[in-house]
Write a protein that binds this DNA or RNA. Structure first.
Lengths: 250, 250
DNA sequence: TGTAGAAGTTCACGCCGCGTCAACATCAAG
DNA sequence: CTTGATGTTGACGCGGCGTGAACTTCTACA
């Protein structure tokens, strides 16, 4: 036969290791055209094409099981559907790494300017996993104590920074209200995330606590006045945004 | 004690599972403040703070062993060095996913236009990154028309995404300037790549066009102001980075 | 106070995609 | 005939936990 490549040749041609080829044989992803009496694997042209296909999909980050189903079904629309699915995942990954990189860069930046690793800064772009929507009333009990303790522990400098961040949030919210952003828009969600992170500096609220806190911002005159200072409706927007935030992120 | 949280409370507060907390105990990353006579783990405020620190770094994609060394050493310069290392990895990942996403998108596109997944097509941007110079020449001709058409074609949603990416680039550049990355550093090159990709959304510039565009960013006040918003020198860095980018990649 | 069930504990295996020995067989070249 | 390159199977390792199993202990309610 003309097209007879042993495992080493295939490995060199494709740039993968022979181990990988053996692995693909083991899991039935790529079976050699024939196996010699000595157990050596021999690949033909068909297998090379299949391997190419596999490698492309692998390079795209697809899992081997999914690759198998794609390669096995020659149906283009199946391939397209699967790829489209996969594309969404890739884009999400890319954005995730972009955010992480930006956050790390910012963290480095602030560290180099002598600032400690404050949680507020650090929690930018932080992905909180979900909490269970269970009753956790007791947490709220000593929450105030702990919040006070944290606040005391911040020091003069920390307190001032904290206040400044608060100001930024109020202004961002005001701008959002004026522009007319919805509570579930990315822009408002960013602000809410920032607010949550800011809050976490002195107190780590769970989902329920965070929602009731933002509700309180609406109900309590003094708080509402504080948040509505730049634009009326900011406290409401924060509350609604927080509800959405909790639903999605906590 | 006031600050006494059992493993379940800590899990709910932080959003991670109790299993993870036990794991962290096992590997010595986060030891409970004390363990009851019945073997139950109890955490205090100190541990919560440490956990926060850990989770942030974890969210940044850092490995647990590296996290341990970062959290254990309170030395900021160590932290910076480790983070800088990590940043390089993150940017590499980001770039990888960006390339993958682009290739997948192209593959989907060609499949939808009825073309089979030929090897020639498939290997675009895969192993051998080939650019056909003649095709690029033709692009430059009606580049402006094309840019306008593309922008219109993006739709409201696309436009907004485009704007947000722009913002990310500006911020990443700002951070890079502050941190002091060189124009030919991997980090800056990554940002430039992103900028080029971003630009390619509405206009695919060739090498010369890309260089003169970034030069224009420096010369034109309005553009410079835009890129220098986060940190002065960003436009310059982008131009120099683009020159390097063109030299190596285009 | 008895009892149920919620929540804690310690093993210990599973996952994904191979890398990396180990121990041995077989091939091509000098 | 040796030597070294290359092939084979088999098995463990990794990272960061998920997910049971089997057992103990705390908490709430009748």
């Amino acid at each position: 036969m003309k097209t007879d490549y042993d495992i080493g040749r295939v490995a060199k041609m494709s740039g993968i290791t022979s181990r990988t080829l053996r692995h693909y044989d083991d899991i039935g992803l790529l079976t050699p055209a024939w196996t010699g009496p000595d157990g050596r694997r021999h690949y033909g042209h068909t297998e090379l094409l299949r391997l190419q296909h596999i490698l492309v999909l692998r390079e795209l980050g697809t899992g081997l099981d999914r690759i198998a189903s794609i390669v096995d079904s020659d149906d283009p629309s199946t391939t397209i559907a699967l790829l489209r699915d996969h594309l969404a995942g890739l884009t999400a990954q890319r954005e995730r790494y972009a955010r992480l990189a930006a956050t790390v860069a910012r963290t480095i930046d602030s560290l180099e300017r002598g600032q400690p690793m404050t949680t507020a800064h650090i929690f930018d772009g932080f992905d909180h996993e979900r909490y269970e929507p269970e009753a956790r009333e007791r947490w709220a009990d000593d929450a105030v104590d702990r919040a006070n303790a944290s606040w005391q522990g911040l020091g003069e400098d920390g307190k001032r920074r904290h206040m400044r961040t608060d100001r930024e949030i109020v202004e961002a919210l005001g701008a959002a209200v004026r522009v007319g952003f919805a509570a579930d828009s990315a822009e408002v969600q960013d602000i809410v995330a920032k607010h949550h992170a800011w809050l976490s500096e002195i107190w780590i609220p769970d989902a329920a606590a965070y929602r009731s806190l933002t509700q309180m911002y609406v109900d309590d005159e003094r708080f509402r006045a504080h948040y509505d200072e730049v634009a009326r409706g900011a406290a409401l927007l924060l509350r609604d945004g927080a509800a959405e935030f909790v639903r999605i992120r906590l």
